[in-house]
Design a protein around this nucleic acid. Structure first.
Length: 860
RNA sequence: GCCCCAGUGGCGGAAUGGUAGACGCGGCAGACUCAAAAUCUGUUGUCGCAAGGCGUGCUGGUUCGAGUCCGGCCUGGGGCACCA
């Protein structure tokens, strides 16, 4: 055996050793029957793509730090992990590599589980779930049937977003810039029969709930608020000339009714369809409107177009005024009533339309104290606030007053009513895919839509499917889809669509609460005990999608009696992305970081052939740009603790993090430095639990102050997720401990106190090293079971302070004074400082500001 | 177009309106070594030999004092977008 000071920290052995100790002792198993206060920490569960990436490492490092810290602080912590296992990549693998999605997924889960275990994360693995298992998805089939029974689900034929690459429907939330969120292909419109969840029933509640989510980032709350898109206005019936029926429009600007120039309806409006029956030209126009895609480019270039129906509507506030009724391509059927009135002077779209069709432009709102006659509308509408003009008895009112007046008047006349509208649409959950949860419905010629009886759940996915045809293998399956109707027994067919995979992730946090098999996926007692999740951690990309669906789903479950919680996540931390420099070869092709090196001249070249490499800016790690670093390699070389330290130390968690070679080297150096400091301490340590020596030198008392201050400050930093600052404080403490004056009285005892503190505080960040050093320090229990240290309040109080002395706001000197010295003395001593005398240059101070224990500012 | 966020050394980043740049990375110099790696010591915003001056995107203001607060602008990032 080499002497200790020549040994090196054996990362691999040490990390594996403590991982198996924790597992043997079931250190992280959680139980509801525990008197300590509960704390539920959750990281967004991964899609089992096959290997973990750096984003996972960051996410789970953050979660593990919080979980271990709260555990040390005396909480009963629930910290589970599982797999968001349904999804398209499994089907793509099936098509490309002829491997069954279930096999592919389960193998990926197995290898990713091993990778996660190598990180030493404090999960209660007994609660692990995989959403592709019937034991999981059977419960959401039941939930769906309960939603159906509770009127939270409906089926309708509707225009949907169709992804031509993935051959499936996308929810509105999954369409980004008119393209599929995964495939990137321009989305087409198709008319399909789809299942919808009534998320809009909860629009107001979901909006109100945001106010209570104080531990969510404002940014995310704002994004959800915008997505829900509440507006207040008026639903108003226009009488149609020469017809018995009326046309209902929605407006947020009832104040501008006197300036109305036209009425327009959507191409898919029932009235348009009716008129088109006798008007082929209108039919052609409607078809043209439906052809236009929803992509950003299509919308931007699309001109405002209308088709005059020949009908006219009567303006309810202007006697005898008839407004032409158009079918217009910019009116949306699924917002408001699918019909509008246009006031060109005060709405840009209406103005564009009016100019094109030569309709009158009447100003009815003018800036205060401006002569309305002087306002000329050119190509820009006046959408600002102001007072009403040219509007009869509304003249002189503010916009807000006029809105209220018109709404009241229309309500009194019985032709309108105050109305709230939301941009939010119902959640279409049908997907034409195989690898998802089957929708438990049977279609019968005679009985119609029949729910699968509960006794027949789960509806299992058939294993024998083929992927040789495009589209949904379930729809091509010869036998699975054919069943007897549960009502009449006649031949019927199964629903072959599966749920959107966001269905699974909308309730998994509740499933973790009851690992044992239950009839409903979890018991109300367990869910009510653990939920809401106290701290949820994941990527900002789910700000709307997953986080909004889960909030809705939890409310829907509550409505159906599953639990008593409304908000699933009380605290949310959205982590930033991991970025890396990008490299291109001479042909402009992307290169992996592992293919690039610096040559002797410091120039970037390809390792294989020495050709020059172009350095691009640092961007989010992505396979397409090849700027990825495999965590497995990093953990294998440096160990999990080093990877974790790097994730925590350089940037605040919500900000993007630049992965650098030197950063990981720096973390590795610190891990080894800590190890050496404990194994070969600069001063000999007394045994564990030695009493404090009667006398301590002043120099080490100062060290003790820093030790206890570090306890206090690191605790605060961790509570606020200022992890990078916590790391900095710990490094400062290790710097001080490394320089402890060896000869000082009590140095050994204070060094032990310092090292034990350091190891305890760093344990949640570097759990393996922490455990190893705890053992090296002579402890026989485990660090994971050690409590968080308490700072001695007496040592937090400084007896002297450094005071900055300014002359006219500029720093001239610092003086060391006893704490809480009186202002007059501080002033006198400040004025006596040589640098202050020089700066004053004989002038008499006009004013002296003394901020106790901080600053003296002399003004001349 | 609308809404939101952010601009601090060579770099990541610190700073309840009170000493700008903690901590780390990188750089430079040195020790140890035949040499290198590792490790350790010193140094490192900028101009200046120094005293000292200048410095938190730009610009104006509030204040004894502004990176921090207020107004206007510039740049970058994000969200929403024919939503009546």
């Amino acid at each position: 055996m080499p002497p200790r000071d020549q040994e090196r920290y054996n990362v691999r052995e040490t990390e594996a050793k403590w991982q198996s100790v924790w597992e043997e002792r079931q250190s992280f198993a959680a139980s509801e029957n525990d008197p300590r206060p509960k704390y539920y920490v959750l990281e967004m569960f991964p899609y089992p793509s096959g290997r973990i990436h750096m984003g996972h490492v960051r996410n789970y490092t953050l979660g593990d730090l919080v979980a271990r810290y709260k555990r040390a602080r005396g909480f009963n912590v629930l910290h589970p992990m599982g797999w968001d296992a349904f999804g398209l990549p499994a089907e793509n693998a099936a098509i490309q590599n002829n491997v069954h999605p279930s096999k592919w997924t389960r193998e990926n889960i197995a290898s990713m589980r091993e990778q996660l275990k190598s990180m030493g994360l404090s999960y209660d693995w007994k609660r692990e779930v995989a959403t592709c298992e019937p034991e999981y998805y059977r419960h959401e089939q039941k939930m769906f049937l309960d939603f159906l029974a509770n009127d939270l689900v409906y089926r309708k034929e509707s225009w949907v977003n169709w992804d031509p690459v993935e051959h499936t429907v996308l929810a509105n939330e999954q369409v980004i810039d008119g393209c599929g969120w995964r495939s990137g292909a321009p989305v087409e419109k198709r008319l399909l029969n789809q299942w919808f969840l009534k998320i809009t029933d909860f629009a107001e509640d979901l909006l109100k709930g945001l106010e209570q989510l104080e531990r969510w980032p404002d940014r995310v709350r704002l994004m959800q608020e915008n997505w829900i898109g509440r507006s207040e206005g008026l639903r108003l019936s226009f009488t149609l000339a020469d017809r018995a029926d009326a046309l209902e429009v929605y407006t947020t600007r009832p104040d501008t009714l006197h300036g109305a120039a036209f009425v327009a309806i959507a191409a898919n409006h029932p009235l348009a369809a009716e008129l088109a029956r006798n008007n082929p030209a209108l039919g052609e126009f409607i078809a043209e409107c439906n052809r236009i895609g929803t992509s950003e480019a299509a919308i931007e270039t699309a001109e405002k177009k209308g088709f005059a129906t020949g009908l006219t509507a009567l303006n309810p506030v202007v006697e005898g005024q008839r407004l032409p009724v158009y079918v217009a391509n910019f009116v949306l059927m699924d917002y408001g009533t699918g019909a509008i009135f246009g006031c060109p002077a005060h709405d840009q779209r209406d103005l564009d339309f009016a100019r094109k069709y030569d309709l009158p432009v009447t100003v009815v709102v003018a800036p205060k104290d401006v002569d309305p006659a002087s306002i000329v509308i050119g190509t820009e509408a006046y959408a600002e606030d102001g007072v009403l003009v040219n509007s009869g008895d509304l003249n002189g009112l503010t916009v807000a007053e006029a809105k209220a007046r018109v709404i009241d008047a229309m309500e009194a006349r019985g032709i309108g009513q105050r109305a709230v509208n939301y941009r939010l649409r119902d959640w279409g959950v049908s997907r034409q895919r195989y690898w998802g949860c089957p929708i438990p419905i049977i279609h019968c010629e005679a009985c119609g839509v029949v729910p699968v009886p509960e006794a027949d759940l789960p509806v299992r996915l058939p294993e024998d499917v083929s992927f040789d045809k495009p589209g949904n293998p379930l729809a091509h399956h010869p036998t699975w889809k054919n069943v007897a109707c549960p009502c009449c027994g006649k031949p019927a067919r199964r629903e072959t669509d599966t749920f959107d995979t966001f269905f699974e992730s909308s309730w998994y946090f509740a499933r973790y609460c009851s690992p044992q098999e239950t009839s409903r996926g979890f018991t109300a007692e367990a869910a009510n005990h653990w939920l809401p999740v106290d701290q949820y951690i994941g990527g900002i990309e789910h700000a709307v999608l997953h986080l909004l669906y889960s909030r809705f789903f939890t409310r829907a479950l509550k409505h159906c009696g599953y639990l008593d919680v409304e908000e699933p996540f009380a605290g949310l931390l959205t982590q930033g992305m991991i970025c890396h420099e990008t490299y291109k070869d001479v042909d402009g092709k992307w290169l992996f970081p592992t293919d690039v090196e610096r040559n002797a001249d410091g120039a970037l070249v390809e390792i294989a052939n020495g050709r020059p490499v172009t350095l691009g800016r640092s961007e989010k790690m992505s396979k397409s740009k090849k700027n990825v670093v495999d965590p497995a390699g990093i953990i294998g070389t440096y160990g999990a603790d080093t990877a974790r330290l790097f994730m925590l130390s350089d940037s605040p968690p919500e900000r993007d993090l630049d992965w650098t070679e030197s950063g990981i080297d720096g973390a590795f150096r610190y891990v080894n430095r800590l190890w050496r400091m404990v194994v070969v301490p600069p001063v000999e340590l007394p045994p564990v639990g030695s009493p404090r020596p009667a006398a301590l030198a002043d120099s080490v008392v100062k060290t003790r102050r820093q030790i206890h201050k570090t306890i206090a400050v690191v605790g605060e930093d961790l509570e606020r997720f200022h992890f990078n600052k916590a790391v900095a404080r710990l490094r400062e403490l290790s710097n001080t401990l490394a320089e402890i004056p060896a000869a000082a009285e009590g140095a050994g005892w204070v060094l032990r106190e310092g090292l034990e503190t350091l190891v305890t505080l760093i344990g949640p960040m570097l759990p393996h090293l922490g455990e190893e050093l705890w053992f090296e320090l002579g402890h026989t229990d485990l660090l994971v079971d050690a409590p968080w240290p308490d700072a001695d309040p007496a040592l937090l109080v400084e007896d002297s302070v450094t005071i900055a002395v300014q002359v006219n706001g500029k720093l001239r000197a610092t003086i060391e004074l006893p704490k809480d010295i009186d202002a007059a003395t501080a002033e006198t001593l400040a004025l006596a400082a040589p640098a202050v005398i020089t700066a004053l240059d004989g002038k008499t101070p006009r004013k002296i500001i003394v901020v106790p224990n901080r600053i003296v500012n002399v003004v001349v």
